[in-house]
């Protein structure tokens, strides 16, 4: 059975979930609004991905409880992030090839 301490803890969590929900909804509207701004392609991509990253961090930190998770999981995810960024760099190699070929 849950103790009073646990109950208070969970009720505090629920308040945080509601704040995160409102923030995510507001940021979704902000993402759409930002797409109508008169920005260069590079600026638009940066802004959209920045907002998406904030939203993703909120989901991972609070809904997935990463903010209070064990170190082992953090290490697994950091290793994953390294491989993910290597994967994102792969397409760049073809452009280096193209540049070298003139």
């Amino acid at each position: 059975m849950s103790t009073n301490h646990d109950t208070k803890d969970i009720q505090q969590h629920i308040k945080v979930y509601m704040i995160v929900f409102a923030t995510l909804a507001a940021l979704t509207v902000a993402t759409v609004a930002a797409s109508y701004l008169d920005l260069s392609r590079g600026e638009a991509i940066f802004l959209a991905l920045a907002i998406a990253s904030i939203k993703g961090s909120l989901v991972a930190s609070y809904f997935m409880h990463l903010i209070s998770e064990k170190a082992l999981i953090t290490w697994i995810l950091m290793l994953t992030a390294v491989f993910f960024f290597i994967l994102m760099l792969f397409p760049m190699t073809s452009f280096i090839d193209q540049a070298q070929l003139g």
Partner: peptide
């Protein structure tokens, strides 16, 4: 799954 959609939405629909 929600997190993936958070990135798919701007990448596919807005950029």
């Amino acid at each position: 799954v929600d997190l993936v959609w958070i990135f798919l939405f701007p990448v596919l629909y807005l950029l």
